[in-house]
Each structure stands twice: as structure tokens, then as C-alpha cells.
Design a protein around this nucleic acid. Sequence first.
DNA 1: TTTACTTTGTTTAATTCTTGACAAACTGAA
DNA 2: TTCAGTTTGTCAAGAATTAAACAAAGTAAA
Lengths: 215, 215
Amino acid sequence: MSKNSISNSVIRRLPRYYRFLGELENNGYVRISSRELSEKMGLTASQIRQDFNCFGEFGQQGYGYNVSDLRLEIGKILGLDKQTPMILLGAGNLGKAIAAHIDFHNKGFDLIGAFDINEELIGKEIGELKVRSIDELSSFCAENKPVAAILCVPMQAAEKLVNTLIGCGIKAFWNFTHYDLKVTHKDVAVENVHLGDSLTTLSYGLNNIELTEKK
Amino acid sequence: MSKNSISNSVIRRLPRYYRFLGELENNGYVRISSRELSEKMGLTASQIRQDFNCFGEFGQQGYGYNVSDLRLEIGKILGLDKQTPMILLGAGNLGKAIAAHIDFHNKGFDLIGAFDINEELIGKEIGELKVRSIDELSSFCAENKPVAAILCVPMQAAEKLVNTLIGCGIKAFWNFTHYDLKVTHKDVAVENVHLGDSLTTLSYGLNNIELTEKK
DNA sequence: TTTACTTTGTTTAATTCTTGACAAACTGAA
DNA sequence: TTCAGTTTGTCAAGAATTAAACAAAGTAAA
């Protein structure tokens, strides 16, 4: 219940904190102050202290924060101490690349299955996974109980697939389709990636530099 | 100069407006009111009107907005009326998938080259592009003047590569590495994608559902 | 132990972002 | 042409977010 009161702005910063703390730990840092972390991350020290305080008092006056303790705490808040079973829908170029590129185990997930509708892809290997026919989806889910899904299918296929998947017990969607996945079901988590929007934003940024330069 | 005063929140919404307006146009819409658009996009009508007003008066009282005019205007603001030459650095799984999956021409870019350091990848085809050796980067840039770059290389390689690329005249980076690209040069645009952070955010969302359900 | 310094947690202030309200301007039917 | 209805652009209120300030609590060296 208290978790509900954490603002979205804070949540979006948590993965980045977690990442920086991991790097600090690897570089042998034992402790860090909000001031030093703020310099490394390009934030204000005040914001960092206030963000951490949403979840409890992790620091100590005159000392700062213990790097590995803090990282562990944030990891727990993010749910990274679990291994949620996840499946991939769509084993085309993007799906394959995501499956190969992402370190799922360090992000709280375990990729246990991949599905496609294209006969040519079915049976092929993606890392340790074999691509299955979408026809096997229901039986696979009944047996293996995946909780999260990656959507790398065409936009047209996404909408009805999502309903099927929710029926199969999927509670979290990592959505790479151009389809704006709406969270109609209140107990489903959605993360829309929208690479196209990201590139469009870069275009704006580039355009804006050039405009200001010409002034 | 006036462009500088547009808030980041507004800018981040622009690509989504553009996308929705495109869909509306495809579905035969000629005009749309802020109220109707707000219902489709899950925003408030007031926000939409204020966002559009940052760039001029595109609407008309009693009528609403002309869909294709508005889309065209937003496209111009986003710089989508150009074709900025772009190169890909890193032709591994992710780089290949991005190159194949993204519709560059509709996002204001033209992918004209791909580079890798791995001998096994050099010479291979990605769509219509041939993967070149990173050794050819300087001469290629001198000749073809790319302005934007996609970074799909390992984190360790990213930092020095960025400096090289800036030296070659690159002004915009679409960064898929785990390296947090800092915008030290004021006239360089950066868009960090951070797929790992996105998945971590999903983990938080999933974890949060489950917590609230158990309450 | 003392003392100067550091740093947190928290309160208060400032800033930014979002929403509500409404006059002015237009549409379209009678 | 008139008039009821619609919708924008804009201003002002309300929320949310971020930054500044500072007492309290610690560190560490003398």
C-alpha cells in the first residue's frame, strides 16, 4: 500500500541508481555520499537523498551510504531478487536480438520459451531456446506458468495476442510493438518501449541543435 | 531560441502525437477535436491544447484540428521532413535487428553505413548495407558526411568511439550501450535507450502488482 | 575526550507541470 | 441571417516535482 505512494518520477530513476551502484561496487567503492553520487550521475544530492528516503533510511550521517547494502535494498525494491519466468512472442530479427542481448537473470527474469507463427522460424534455436509454434502457447503456459511476456510481433497481431496471454496468466508485458498497449486490466504491468518514438525524439534533438546554432 | 523554451515533458509527448495522428489519417479522419484525441490517447484535452500551442495556433474554434495539417506541422517540428544520414556502429545481434526493424526514412534518417570490429561480421550484408571494418570509419565519414550514429557496441568500446565519432562530425547519438552517454559537447544530441533499465522498470511494476494484491 | 568536519533526513521554498475555467471564434442547421 | 452548440487559445489555480536549507547525528583526528 505504501508502495503505491511512490511517485513515477522516483521509480523511473531507480534502475539507473541500481546500475550506477553496481558499477561503483565493481570499482571497489565501499561507501558513497549523496554528494559524490550526484556528481557522477548528474543529479542533485538533495534529490538522491529524498529518493532513497521513500523506501527507508539507508544512510548514516557523517558517513554516507554503504554501496553494496544500498544496491541490495534497491534490488529488492525492484524485484530483482526473484526469477520471474518469461516468454518471447515473435522470434524475428528483433525478438532474437532481444533474447540474445539482454541479461535476463540480472533483471529479475528467466526466459523459458519463444514462440512464432512463421513456419520457417519454428524449430530454430535462439541461444538455448527452441522456437515453438504459437499453437503450443496454451499448453506450454498451463505447464510452465510464465508470468511475463516480451511482445516482438507485428502491431496487428499484438492486440488479440495480449488477451490470449492474459488468459494464460501473463501479468507483465514488455512491449516492443508499435501498438500502444493500454492497461485495461488493473493487475497487469506494462512497459512500452517504442523504439520509433525514441528515434523521433533524437531527430527533434538534432533538429533543435541545428536551429539554435543558426541563430 | 524560442525552441529552447519548450519543456522536455512536451517534447517527449510529440512523437506519440505524431504516431496517433498518422493512424487517424490512415483511418480517414479529416478533423479531430482535442476532446476526442484526449479520449483516444488517455490524456486531458487541456494538456493537448496547451502542448500544441507551444508551437503555434494549429486549430480553429468550433472545428478542432485538421488531422493531416497538424501531423505535417508536428513532423516539421520533429525534423521528420529531412533525411539525415546515419551510420550503425556494431553489427552484432542488436545492431542488425535495429537496422532491419526500424523504418528510418519515416523517422527523419537514412541509414547509409554499418561498421564492426569483428572480422567475421565484416563484409556481411544487413539489408542493403555491407558491414565495413571500423578502420574505414574516418574515410567513410569524410566522404559521406553522416550526421547521426547508432551505438550498438559493448560498453567498453563506446566511450572512445564517441569521441572519434564527434571528431568525424557526428552530431546525434542513438545509444543502445549500457554506457550512460554524457552530453559534454553542447552541440550534440543524445538519446539513451537502456533496454536493461526498461526491463528493470517492468520488474518493479510486476513486483508492485503482486504486493498490492497480497494486501 | 574534544572539536572540526561531514553527511543524512526532513522541512520549507521554488519551480515546473497539469488541470480547470471561460471568453472569443467558429460551425452548421433552421 | 440568426442562434444554439462546439471548440480553441489562454489565463489562473492546483499538483507534483525538484532544490535549498538546516538541525541532528555521525566520523575522525588530535
